[in-house]
């Protein structure tokens, strides 16, 4: 905004008139200052809009090729969640057609195939922010983060995979609360998440970088909140693909209505991750203590002698690199 203020000239007028005249000269300046004040965001909000490309340097093997079966390391899960994950048979997503187009939910969706678009919805008349909308590469999931102060729906309202999100500014950080989520997964190897969870996110933009901290509180599955972070960098040339999903039964069920599952104690794959990476079983079984560094002092010895060299996803940070490594024979 270009502002020009003419200097006043001296004149022999009564003091009262002079003060009035002086005020009239100052008034445009005050008005401009007021306008400038109004133009500053009320809550120090910043624009998160843009095309964001994910950085997979954190948890790359889990997020790209996918977690190993039986790997619950670092997840503060309870006994119920552990048994549910142990019972998971990956055939389920080939046999049960209803799973085939099931998307990542809002919380897990931040972790994988995470090319992200963020755009703002602005009220034309007030120029106030109504919502942020996001589009995620995985399944083309769209999500809305309401910024207009609206309340969350009643408890009996429908749940969705993206849930109902509202955001508030805490300085330049956007804190998002999401409820009404459908049951989904905390890790793509059968570790579940429940429809009773609440997800809190902290979105922080640092120039061309975006960091989101995701905190999952799930009274059904977790004994402590699960805290994870993901990062993106601005990529204005990013072009998102059109996502399409049509389900079909890829593998016939063993019997009509069958839901593939391993009976308790009968899953033959649970020790693989420990053996392939030379880890103690206590570590891969998860639980809150596996989140903390001191656990390394008491986690015990490897279940099997560590391999001479790692044959799995040990260093990969891109999907192509991960896929170059063959699976060891079972």
């Amino acid at each position: 905004m270009l502002i020009q203020v003419k200097r006043g000239r001296a004149s022999a007028v009564p003091p009262s008139f002079r003060s009035t005249q002086a005020l009239s000269r100052v008034w445009p300046v005050l008005l401009c200052l007021l306008l400038l004040t109004l133009a500053v965001p009320s809550f120090a909000q910043i624009d998160l809009s843009g095309e964001w490309a994910p950085a997979y340097h954190e948890d790359g093997p889990e997020r790209l090729p996918g977690p190993e079966l039986g790997d619950y390391m670092g997840l503060p899960i309870n006994d119920a969640a552990r048994l549910r994950a142990d019972s998971y048979d990956a055939d389920r997503i080939s046999v049960v057609t209803e799973y085939q187009c099931r998307p990542h939910s809002a919380d897990y969706g931040m972790r994988g195939a995470g090319n992200l678009r963020v755009w703002r919805e602005i009220d034309y008349k007030t120029q106030q922010l109504i919502a942020f909308h996001t589009y995620m590469a995985a399944w083309g999931s769209e999500r809305t983060i309401w910024m207009d102060g609206r309340a969350h729906p009643p408890a009996a309202a429908e749940h969705t995979f993206q849930g109902f999100s509202t955001g508030v500014w805490e300085g330049n950080m956007l804190t998002v609360t999401t409820t009404h989520l459908k049951a989904n997964y905390l890790r793509r190897n059968g570790v579940p998440s429940s429809d009773k969870r609440t997800v809190t996110e902290h979105w922080a933009r640092h120039g061309d970088f975006l960091t989101v901290i995701v905190v999952v509180d799930d009274p059904v599955i977790l004994t402590e909140p699960l805290v994870r972070s993901e990062n993106w960098y601005l990529d204005p040339g990013q072009q998102q693909n059109v996502m399409y999903c049509e389900y079909t039964q890829e593998v016939p069920p063993s019997s009509p209505g069958a839901v593939p599952n391993h009976l308790p104690g009968a899953n033959p794959f649970l020790n693989e991750v420990a053996d392939w990476y030379g880890l103690p079983l206590a570590g891969v079984r998860g639980g809150a203590e596996t989140m903390y560094p001191e656990f390394r002092l008491k986690m015990g010895s490897p279940h099997a002698p560590p391999p001479a060299h790692c044959e799995r996803f040990c260093i990969c940070t891109t999907l192509a690199d991960c896929n170059l490594r063959p699976r060891p024979a079972r």
């Binding site: 389920r92 209803e98 799973y99 408890a155 009996a156 309202a157 429908e158 749940h159 049951a183 599952n261």
Partner: peptide, 17 residues
């Protein structure tokens, strides 16, 4: 609460398992 297919699948899986 109000549900749809995804919720029924979770429940059916539980009963079946």
């Amino acid at each position: 609460r109000i549900c749809n297919e995804g919720d029924v699948v979770e429940y059916r899986d539980m009963v079946t398992i």
